[in-house]
Design a protein around this nucleic acid. Structure first.
Lengths: 329, 329
DNA sequence: CTGAAAGCGCTTACAG
DNA sequence: CTGAAAGCGCTTACAG
């Protein structure tokens, strides 16, 4: 690999001058610069970024910790982060936890070892003092969801409001038995803002939430299919509407409705969450809660980069969800 | 930030010994090691990876160039690559071109500047001599698709066979007017192996391909919806089956069929491509060509890492597609 | 088993 | 405007 001394040798200038030309230092004449650039081109020389990093420039790499790359929600978030970061010279390292704590640990180590300039975490398992310190130092930004106790800053949308509005919509359409389908464990419900929004709307209509109508741990399309079976097993008591915290699970339910000739939305209304592309492709189109993923991604990228470069933090935009009404409710 | 000299100072050992303890060198006694590790823990010390890199260890970073992160096909490929790479200590930098050549250029520069140990490219725009040199050197591995002229090694499935089989299936079901829906530009058809497989099957049944039934540049769900309109506009001549080189586009077509009460597969049969999760969620389930994405990702990861570490290349597995028959054909 | 010193490839304060 | 030299934080050949 060619290095800076090769360029110095070839041009007759000192290493110092080559470095100054590369870094566009004013004290190098244009003629000198041109000669140097020509030589660099000829030698196919590129500065070794690792050496530059050791001299204080960062890695220009931001890690983004997500649970699964194959989850479209994260994919759209990463897309927004990547575009914003690219503009200012940063790239994204994709870090999926697969919900394994050792993976999260290793990713945080990457930050400590300075492989990464900063870290965006969409989930947080390890809230040890060291991690908290990194959050305080601005090296880690937590975004989207965190169901823990600690009082840490979190960039997120108002999820409670989102489900409140969706549930309210169903209620206003006359539904009274509304089920709740979530990917979370049942034990998490107590601290889940989405569940709280659902409960609040029900209570405003004088309805006590029925735990038989809550379906936890539903994550995939085929979970959705089996959820319909569970719903039907409730007989007379079964819900006439479902708030489903995942478009994918909702799509599984809808598909099964077709198979069993259950009319949507007449017999069963369905609202999804996220407004993934699939929502538009289904028939009937899936009514769903659109998250401001793009805005959130852009903001969180701007925030971590401001932290890395010790600049003043940008102002948080309003992160509003929106109920997109299509055919299923 | 704590550095190795801080650990040396605290323990009273030399920097050399600390380094040796970190790198598990045999000439350090276990008692010494323990003392050193305790001090490291106490100081929350992590070796600066950048300095280590400069001493010859790579960045342990592999770039993966894809067109769009939001495309599920790439998402599944990245997932497979990530998992295989993680096992052996590498991480993935996600590099989306958005089909802009400057982006591709910048990503290749990252490799030249040694920000990346290797590069997996799922598309290749710039086949300049320098890039070819990097491919020959094993620093770049090209995977999936390349519609260029150059004779470069490419890891890929037998796409011609895949579309041949899908088309053959439609023909054997009695369809004779089979349309072809692709994301490529029409001008690319001549070098597109997928199109060749389609044409070959038709010819075996004595059918001349009809250019009216070829729909290029269809990339999105809403492209799919408008494609049905284009199909219907053909009147008597319209196809009774469609081979669609994208599950997403196929889902758009199917959704529009529901809207216009066109029976699938009776009036119009549809075959997609990729077997994305959406295929299973649609009604009827989408018959589609499943690609061996996992196998391809694992192999390409193993290959680039073998190159990086100057080890012998693993053997290429068979990369077979499979027609998944569901309800649309 | 241990340490002083050279060196990885750059940047930059200092001196000219 | 230019260059010799120090130094970023490590690893390792060399000497003991």
């Amino acid at each position: 690999m060619t290095k800076i001394s090769d360029v110095a040798e070839k041009t007759g200038y000192s290493i110092t001058t080559i470095s100054r030309a590369i870094n566009d230092h004013p004290y190098v004449s244009d003629k000198t610069k041109k000669k140097i650039f020509d030589a660099m081109k000829e030698l196919d020389y590129y500065p070794n970024n690792v050496a530059q990093q050791l001299r204080g420039k960062g890695t220009k790499l931001i890690g983004v910790i997500i649970s699964f790359v194959t989850n479209p929600f994260f994919t759209y978030l990463v897309d927004a982060i990547e575009k914003a970061a690219y503009q200012v010279g940063y790239q994204i390292v994709i870090l999926q936890t697969l919900e394994e704590p050792e993976r999260e640990k290793r990713f945080i180590e990457m930050l400590k070892k300075r492989q990464l300039d900063g870290l965006i975490m969409t989930s947080l398992d390890d809230d040890s003092p060291e991690v908290l310190k990194l959050i305080e130092a601005g090296k880690i930004v937590v975004c989207n969801r965190y169901l823990g106790e600690q009082n840490i800053p979190l960039i997120h949308v108002d999820e409670k409001k989102a489900t409140y509005e969706a549930t309210y919509y169903l209620l206003s359409k006359g539904h009274r038995k509304i089920g709740y389908v979530t990917g979370n464990r049942g034990s998490m419900l107590a601290v889940d803002p989405r569940f709280k929004g659902y409960v609040q709307a029900l209570k405003e209509f004088g309805i006590e939430p029925n735990s038989d109508c809550v379906f936890p741990r539903r994550l995939t399309i085929s979970d959705g299919k089996s959820t319909l079976t569970d719903v039907l097993a409730l007989g007379e008591e079964r819900p006439d509407a479902l708030l489903v915290i995942s478009d994918e699970v909702a799509s599984g339910i809808l598909s099964q409705c077709h198979l069993l000739n259950i009319e949507v939305p007449e017999t069963l209304a369905i609202i999804g969450f996220d407004d993934q592309p699939i929502a538009e492709a289904l028939y009937p189109g899936l009514t769903t809660v659109k998250q401001p993923i793009k805005e959130m991604g852009e903001y969180v990228a701007a925030l971590i980069i401001a932290n890395i470069e010790h600049r003043k933090q940008p102002e948080m935009p309003e992160l509003n969800t929106k109920l997109i009404i299509r055919g299923t409710a």
